[in-house]
Design a protein around this nucleic acid. Structure first.
Lengths: 207, 207
DNA sequence: TTCCCTTTTGACCAATCTGGTCAATTGTAT
DNA sequence: ATACAATTGACCAGATTGGTCAAAAGGGAA
């Protein structure tokens, strides 16, 4: 099914993919319209159903595909050798911000898929999602250098705190850059500010 | 318009309100169906348009009404005399959790309204929202006792950290209680755990 | 040109749904 | 019986739904 799709003009592929994830993100599975998708992709109705045999087929393909796309980009750009957990978490958060900036439509789509409640696709989605989380998230907290922590601090809670702080921080960054016109922003200032928070937390929890 | 509505059976009022916010939260303004609302409220089409002269009228009324409801409940149960910022933030977060637990439908509706992009209502919503945020949020950070902070700590950033940590914490609590069957939960354990985090942060930032 | 195969089209389907109206019915209090 | 408010639901005209399929268009080889 999908293999045939990838032989298309790359530009036509993109038009279809973008139109589809936009529509699904906007309206959710049930309410999304295949008519709307073909119209905004500039292709005929028949063609869409030629490549994807049903609406469900299309939706599940999109989900699988873009999870894969983000995963690939994420793991190719992240250095895993970073020994300090705090910095590791920071890198992940900043990367997430950069990727949300770069591919907002994909994030919107995957976020809406995460919230999707239509019984027609819910089961398959949950399955994909769990597989992803289990494989990716765990390794953030792997191999933490315990010797750096001051005696008496609860290491797990400390790491949790750092995680929440940087999550809050990157959420704030996203909201700010959304308000201002975005464009060229390379997050240099934000990296620096994130480091200030890291330093504060290190001073609190490290020896 | 709305004044007439409040003369109805209270039970009928509730049926209408619940049906409406559920539908709007589920599908967004454009895609929400007035037919669906009257069906699930068990009233006739004509009646809905008798009390609310249009779909837009209904939507904006619901928004205004439930913002008011939550605001009232929030400010009536919160003690403002709490002198410690950290505890103040904690109280607000825990209260938010409790209210989300108590009125999940209202939160869903207001959350979806916050994300609403339909041009027909966006402008009015933004206006309401801004008014709310400006009046409520500011006083969280009012009158902070600076003398408690250790020298050398950046007070604003410290408060920000506490805010993010407790936000992350309460989000986690919500997700957990959503997975488990909810029911009777009074958040006693969660209050205690939140206090642990508060203590850690106090030790870091206070004299 | 002719042949053959793949790609692409869009009219068509039957069903459902849209926000909103309004003449008619029902309920209630005098 | 009268008046008035509350309530109904059939009706409107048009749009939209996921999906099909015979036909047209494209393109390379003979």
């Amino acid at each position: 099914m999908a293999s045939r799709f990838f032989n298309l003009d790359e530009e036509k592929q993109l038009r279809i993919l973008n139109a589809a994830i936009y529509e699904f993100a906007q309206k959710g599975y049930d309410q999304a319209s295949t008519n709307e998708i073909v119209k905004s992709a500039g292709i005929s109705k028949g063609l869409l159903f030629h490549y994807f045999k049903s609406k469900k087929d299309l939706y599940l393909f999109l989900h699988q595909h873009f999870v894969e796309v983000l995963k690939t980009e994420f793991f190719s750009e992240l250095q895993f050798d970073e020994p300090d957990v705090f910095v590791r978490i920071k890198n992940i958060m900043m990367m997430k911000s950069q990727m949300m900036k770069k591919h907002p439509e994909i994030f919107n789509f995957l976020m809406s898929a995460y919230m999707e409640s239509s019984s027609e696709v819910k089961h398959e989605l949950d399955h994909n999602h769990h597989a992803l989380m289990h494989s990716s998230y765990a390794k953030i907290f792997e191999d933490i250098d315990q010797s750096k922590f001051r005696e008496g601090v609860d290491m797990n809670r400390a790491v949790q705190i750092v995680f929440w702080v940087l999550e809050g921080f990157s959420k704030q960054v996203m909201e700010k850059t959304e308000l201002l016109g975005q464009s060229d922003n390379d997050f240099t200032d934000e990296f620096a500010e994130a480091d200030v928070y890291i330093e504060i937390l290190k001073k609190s929890f490290y020896k």
